[in-house]
Structure formats: C-alpha cells, structure tokens
Computed example of a mutant assay.
Amino acid sequence: MNLKTGIFSGSFNPIHIGHLALANYLCEFAELDEIWFMVSPHNPLKEEGNLLADHKRLELVELAIEGYPRFHASDFEFQLPRPSYTVHTLEKLKESYPEREFHLIIGSDNWSLFSLWKDSEQIITGTPILIYPRPGFSIDEKQLPEGVSLVSAPLLDVSSTFIREAISTGKDIRYFLPPAVYKMIVSEGLYK
C-alpha cells in the first residue's frame, strides 16, 4: 500500500502554529500518513525583502516539527531548476518516490487563482488536491472537479506576515510559534 503523503509547500517565513495545526489536522482527520513541509526556495524574480535564506527557513521547520514522526521537512525544491513550478515538483516527486501517493495541500485563496498556475489541468488530473479554508475565500464544494476536495480544517487566521511585523515592532508573540522556533528567532535576532 502506498504511503499517502501530503505536500504542504510554502515559504514558511517563519513556520507558525497555524501551519502546524493544519498539518496535524490533515494527518489525523484527512487520512494522510505523513506531511512534507516543502520549503520553497527564493524566487529570483521576486523581491527578497525580509525572506530568510532558504536553509534558515528549513532549519526553523525542522525545529518546529521535531518529535512528531508524521511531519518531514523537505528541501526537495532546492535542487530543482528555478523558478520552481508545482507541476514540475510533483513530477519529480513521483519519479523519485514511486512508493508514495502524493496529495497537494493548498489554501482556498490559492484555489481561487489555480487556473493561472502552470499546467493547472495536469495537476488536477494527476494529483489529489486537498483545499483548506482561508478567511475571505469560500468555496462551493459542488463546483470542485474530481480528485479535489475541501477539508473542514479549523480556520486559524495567523499569517507569517503578521508574525514578522509583530516581531519587527518588538512584540512578544511567543505563543504564535513553536517554542524552539521562537527561541531561535529571538536569539538570532531574526526579522528585526
């Protein structure tokens, strides 16, 4: 039997309790065997701004998920040609790990733009997609194509942008982050 592996891609700049609670929910209630946190490399076409270096964000993900065996931090996309497109990542994952059945995890905000993604139809027909709710982006389940499903995960309105802005203004937001992640951000003066 193939392992059902959820691919949760993002910049994770930084990873926070919203990401972890969602992934935990998907493992326990959406019948995924494991979740790979696919840290997206910096897109050279985009403004870097306050995006931490790829390996620093990966390190924060590793700290955040330590001790939960169903979570895995992945730098898979770091090795792929840039810019990285989801369709190419999924093709390479399937080649590299034929014993796994990959499921793409995206927010309802991304689903509303999904038709603009490179080869979106190929993704839909080739990979099961799990959509989680995001504030302000409701979805009519009856309109979803086969292989695409809405998960009724709790709505946690926490964003990495909020975290970075709060830290940059000196707010103590330790309970929005896993303790090891908060400790590293403070000790290294990240996002200041």
Rank of each mutant, 00 (worst) to 15 (best):
L144N: 02
F102P: 04
I65Y: 04
S84Y: 01
V158F: 05
H42N: 09
T127W: 00
Q79M: 08
A73M: 10
E121N: 06
M38F: 03
K46I: 05
N110M: 15
F137Q: 07
W117E: 07
S152V: 13
H55P: 00
T127N: 02
L45F: 14
S138P: 15
H72C: 13
L60D: 09
T127Y: 05
Q143W: 00
N110W: 08
I129M: 05
L155R: 12
P41E: 04
I129A: 01
W36T: 02
F76Y: 14
G49D: 03
L90V: 04
L113A: 14
K118Q: 11
S149F: 08
L58I: 11
G126W: 01
L58P: 01
L32G: 03
H55A: 14
Y85R: 08
W36K: 01
S149D: 07
S115C: 08
I35R: 02
H103A: 05
A30F: 03
L130A: 12
L116Q: 15
Q79Y: 13
V61C: 11
L80I: 07
W111D: 01
L80Y: 02
I139D: 06
L60N: 08
P133M: 07
E77F: 05
T127D: 02
V151R: 15
N110K: 11
E99C: 12
K94S: 12
P41M: 00
D109M: 12
S138V: 10
Y97F: 15
P44S: 08
P145L: 12
E95F: 03
S160L: 02
P83T: 03
P81V: 13
L113C: 10
G107D: 06
E62P: 03
M38D: 11
E141A: 11
S159C: 08
L90H: 05
W111S: 09
D109F: 06
V61E: 07
G107H: 06
K142E: 15
V148L: 09
L51K: 13
L60R: 03
S40C: 11
I35H: 11
P83L: 05
F137T: 13
E141R: 15
E99K: 15
Q122I: 04
V61R: 05
F162K: 13
V87Q: 06
Y68P: 00
S159N: 05
F78Q: 07
F78I: 14
S96H: 10
L130N: 10
L130W: 02
E165F: 02
V158N: 03
N50V: 09
Y68W: 12
D54N: 15
S74W: 07
M38V: 12
Y132E: 05
Y68G: 03
T86K: 00
V148K: 00
E59C: 02
E165I: 12
E34G: 09
L144A: 01
S84D: 02
K46S: 10
I123E: 03
F37K: 01
D33H: 06
K92W: 05
L45T: 14
D75W: 01
N50S: 11
K46T: 13
H72M: 10
I139A: 04
Y85G: 09
S108I: 14
S40N: 10
E59K: 07
Q122F: 00
N50K: 14
I105L: 04
F102V: 10
R57C: 04
A53K: 14
P133K: 13
A30P: 06
L32Y: 09
A166E: 08
